[in-house]
Design a protein around this nucleic acid. Structure first.
Lengths: 245, 245
DNA sequence: ACCGAACCTGTGAACTTGCTGAGGATGGGT
DNA sequence: ACCCATCCTCAGCAAGTTCACAGGTTCGGT
C-alpha cells in the first residue's frame, strides 16, 4: 500500500480514482504559479485563472473539486465571483485568500458555509492543509483517510490539533505544529532546510536561515526528549523523520 | 462509528438514509446563498427559490422535508406562499424569516400549525438549530438523536435550554447558549474565532472581533470555573471543547 | 588529532495574541 | 418610568510566541 502512483503516503483522489481537480484564482502570476506548483506536487490537477471572469468561466468548464480564490481581484469582488461560481457549481468548497490587514475584507459569512480562508502572506503547508481539510469535510474525495497522521508512535490529529507520542500528550505552538505536520506528511524523506523554509514559513519570510534549526531544536525537545530520536539530521542535506522502530 | 460518510457526529437523514431535502426561499441572492451553503454543510440537499412563485413550483417539484421561507417576498405574501405550498405539501414544516419589527400577530397566524420563525438578522447557528428542531418534531427524519447534546460531563438540552455540568445546573444567556451549542456540536474540533463569529453571531455583526474572546471568557467562568477545563485556547488557531477525561 | 563547516541551543528582546475588568447602551419586564 | 439582565466596546495587562544573535558542540575530512 506504500507504493501507489506516488510514494507520498496520502495522496487524495476522487471517487473514481482520478486526481483531485483544483482551480487557483489570483491575479498575481507569481503567487498563482507558486500555489499551482505546490498543489501539483500534491498530485492534483491544477488550473489557474488570473481574473474573476476567467475564474467563473474556468469553474464552469472544469468543474473543480476545490477552488482557491483571492478575494482581491481587479475585476470582480470575491463575493461576486463566489456567487457566480456557485450558480454553476453549488457544492464546490472554496478557500479564500485575503490580506491580513485588509480593512475588514468583508469575509464575514464566507466561512459560515463551511468554506475557509487564509490570510496573506500564508505558508504553503497551511494552504494545502486547509484544502485537504475542505476536501475531507465535503466528502468530494475518496478519503479512507482520517484527519490523523501517524508515524511510528507519533500521532497528530489535524482537527483537534492534538499531538502525542506513545500516548503522551504533547503541546506544540502553531509553528511547531506546522513543521511537524510537514515532517509527518513526508516520513522517511529527507527534507532540506530550504524546502522546509519554503513550505512551512510564509512565502515572504526574510529572516535568518537558521530559524529552521531553531524550530527543529524546539521540536526535538518536545517529541524526542528522553526517547528514541525520530528526528534525524543529515549533515549538509537536511532532516528526516523516521519511525523509531 | 467514526467513519461515516461525513465526520460530523450528527448528520440528520431521512428514513431511507437519503439526505434531508431543504428548500430555501429568499429574494436576496446573498442571503439565499449563505443559507444554502450553511445547510449543505449540514449534509443536506438544498435548492433555493428567489420568488414566491418559484417557491411554489419548487415545493411541488422537490417535495422538500423542510422549507425556509422569507415572509417578505416581492411577488407573493408569506401567507399566500404558505397557502399554495400547503395545497401540494400539506405537512411540510416551515421556518419563516421575518424582519425584526414585523407585526407580531401576522407571524402568530403563520406559525399556528407548529411551524417556527426567526427574525432577521439571524445567526446561522440559530436557523440550523430551529430547522433541526422542526425536523425532529415532525418526525420527517430518522433521528435516533435526541435534542440532548453531551460532551464529557457537560449536558445540554436544546429543547428546554437546560445546561448542566456534572449534574450541576448552569444558567446561560442566549448568546452564551448558542456559543456553547456550537462547541458541543463540534467537540474536539478546533474552531477559529472567524468561524465562530460567522456561525454564532448575526450575519450582519460588524463589531469588534474580540467579542468571541469575551464570550469564551464568560462561558469558562460558568462551565470551567473550579473544574477541569474543557474549553481550551489554541493560540493563533482557535478554541476546542474537549471532554475533561 | 586537528580544523573548519555545519549544526545546536541559551538568552533575551520585540512582538503578537488573548484575557478580563469597567462601564456604556439597549431593551424587556414590572 | 424604572430596573435589571444582557450585549458589547474599550483598554490595559499578562502571557505566549517568534526570532536574532552568539557562543558552544559535533561531525567529517585530512
Amino acid at each position: 500500500m506504500t507504493t501507489t502512483t506516488s510514494n507520498r503516503p496520502d495522496v487524495l483522489a476522487r471517487a473514481d480514482g482520478s486526481p483531485v481537480r483544483a482551480l487557483v484564482v489570483d491575479d498575481e502570476p507569481t503567487l498563482a504559479e507558486l500555489l499551482s506548483t505546490a498543489l501539483r506536487y500534491e498530485g492534483w490537477q491544477v488550473d489557474h485563472a488570473l481574473s474573476g471572469h476567467a475564474a467563473v468561466r474556468a469553474a464552469k468548464a472544469l468543474d473543480p473539486d476545490v477552488i482557491v480564490l483571492d478575494v482581491m481581484l481587479p475585476d470582480l469582488s470575491g463575493i461576486d465571483v463566489l456567487r457566480r461560481v456557485r450558480a454553476t457549481n453549488p457544492n464546490v468548497p472554496v478557500l479564500f485568500l485575503t490580506a491580513k490587514d485588509a480593512v475588514e475584507d468583508r469575509i464575514a459569512g464566507l466561512t459560515a458555509g463551511g468554506d475557509d480562508y487564509v490570510t496573506k502572506p500564508f505558508s504553503l503547508e497551511e494552504v494545502v492543509a486547509r484544502l485537504r481539510a475542505l476536501l475531507r469535510r465535503t466528502g468530494a474525495v475518496s478519503s479512507r483517510e482520517e484527519a490523523v497522521l501517524v508515524v511510528g508512535d507519533l500521532r497528530m490529529d489535524e482537527d483537534s490539533h492534538e499531538v502525542s507520542r506513545d500516548g503522551e500528550d504533547i503541546r506544540l505552538t502553531a509553528t511547531e505544529f506546522e513543521l511537524l505536520r510537514y515532517f509527518m506528511r513526508n516520513p522517511k524523506r529527507v527534507l532540506s532546510k530550504a524546502q522546509i523554509l519554503d513550505r512551512v514559513w510564509q512565502y515572504d519570510f526574510g529572516g535568518q536561515a537558521n530559524i529552521v534549526e531553531l524550530y527543529v531544536s524546539y521540536l526535538r525537545r518536545k517529541i524526542d526528549k528522553g526517547r528514541t530520536p525520530m528526528l534525524h539530521t543529515l549533515r549538509g542535506v537536511g532532516y528526516v523523520l523516521k519511525p523509531s522502530v
